[in-house]
Structures are given as structure tokens and as C-alpha cells.
Design a protein around this nucleic acid. Structure first.
Lengths: 121, 121
DNA sequence: ACCGTACTACGATGCCTATCGTACGAGCCC
DNA sequence: GGGCTCGTACGATAGGCATCGTAGTACGGT
């Protein structure tokens, strides 16, 4: 039994998230103004809430991927938890909808529209 | 009658705007992720479409104000035309609504909500 | 013609950030 | 335990950007 060691280890592996009322619109918009991060959020919205970082195929290195996920987490857009060695990511849809009703759907819709327009133009 | 001189002078005073289909969501989000610019857009949405730059009371110098208005124009969020020495600003609501239906209203609503939440405790 | 007002252009500055590479820590499986 | 995979930390780098100040242009009024 390794109680103290495990708890501290797990505590050190919990990631800091902003509380709901600490989320700022400007921060959310800034996070989503990067094409890479917008793509991540779109995939999270489409494929459900339990995607590990490594399931995303991004044209950047792992270091950069880590950076983008951290920006999304620190701006309050996504939630991240460790599950074993994997880090699972989920949209903070409840918080965002409570703070800014309709915004997330409008953003996702806008992204989908633009993607369709540019991709099948 | 000063035809040629005036036309070239006016031509040199027309400002470049992106066409509707050149507007990019990421650019719009980046433009609105700055508090100063978000405030400008909120005032434009509230007070109508014909506001000159100097009517905005911003805690920055005129140089910086010019910069912010240019970012908004080049990202496709606002339209700018010269009227005498003044530069009139207006939201590109028609273009934005056509490209991203509901987005602008969702953004303005989110900004208003956050402002109310932070301003009135 | 002259002056004042509105806005711009340009250079400087300091900060932020997207990106990479390398080295490392944490947990799973044999 | 040994190795493997997933993700992190840290430093470096290069580019972007918000801000300023100063000097200048354009236009309208006197």
C-alpha cells in the first residue's frame, strides 16, 4: 500500500483549470483564433469527449501539441484529466454554455461552414 | 473643377478591405480577442454604423487606435470610409451574417453577458 | 494662404507565442 | 526490473504584435 506517495503523485498529476467564473471571453477567442486549436476543438465537438492527445494528427511536433492543449485548457475551453499515461480531453461545454449561451454552437457552425466553403469551393 | 486630381486623391484615400469570401474565421476571432477591439465592435453594434475613430474614448494613444481599427478592417469585421477628414466606421454585419450566421450576435451577446457579470458583481 | 483637426506612417521597444529539439518523468506490460 | 509509449519541461529561436512618440499628410474653415 503506498497511500501518501500515490496521493501526492496523483495530486502532482492533476492539471490546473480555471473555474467557470474565471473564464474570459477574450481568452476563449484568442485560444480559438489559432487554426490548430480550432481544429482540435472541432474534432472534440464531433468525436465526443474522451480523446487522448495522441489521437490528434497535427502537423506539428509533440511539444507544440502539448502547448496548444495547455492553451485550450488554461483558457477554459477544454478539460483535461490523466487516465494512466494518456491524457483525455473534453470540451467544457457545460461551462461555456452557461457563461455564453449559443456561442460555442455558433463558433462550431461558423468553422464548419468555412471549412465546407473552402474545402468544396 | 479638379477632376483628375480629385479622383486620384480620393483613390489614394480609399482603404483596402477584404472581399466577403476572403474573410477568415480565425482572423475575425483574433481581431475580437483583444479587449480594446472587442469594445470598439460593441460600441459600433450599439451606437449605429457611422462612428468616426475620434468618437471612441480609448485608454491608448491615437497611433494605437489607428492600429486597432486597421486590424478590424483587415480582418473583415468593420468597413471604413473617409468622409472629409473623418474616418467613419461601420460593422460589416451583412457580410459576417452571410458567412457565419448567428456568430456576430452570439459574440455580442457573450460580450454583454460577461460585461454585466464583471461590472455588477 | 493659413491654421487646426483627424488620421497616418515609420521606427523603436518590449512582450507574447508558435515552433522545434532534447532530455526527462509517469505509468503500463512482459 | 527493463523497456515502451505518452506526455512534460526547458531552452532557443524567430516572428508577431500592442504600445508609444514623432513627424507628416489630407481636408475643411477662416
Amino acid at each position: 500500500m503506498e497511500p501518501a506517495a500515490v496521493t501526492t503523485a496523483r495530486a502532482s498529476r492533476t492539471l490546473p483549470h480555471p473555474a467557470r467564473d474565471e473564464i474570459r471571453l477574450e481568452g476563449v477567442l484568442h485560444a480559438l483564433s489559432d487554426p490548430m486549436r480550432l481544429q482540435i476543438v472541432r474534432e472534440l465537438a464531433a468525436d465526443g469527449d474522451e480523446l487522448s492527445c495522441s489521437q490528434f494528427v497535427l502537423p506539428v511536433t509533440k511539444s507544440t501539441t502539448t502547448h496548444h492543449f495547455r492553451v485550450l485548457r488554461e483558457s477554459g475551453v477544454i478539460r483535461q484529466i490523466y487516465r494512466g499515461t494518456a491524457k483525455m480531453n473534453g470540451l467544457r461545454r457545460d461551462d461555456l454554455d452557461a457563461l455564453f449561451p449559443g456561442l460555442l454552437d455558433a463558433l462550431l457552425g461558423a468553422a464548419a461552414r468555412q471549412s465546407a466553403r473552402l474545402g468544396e469551393g
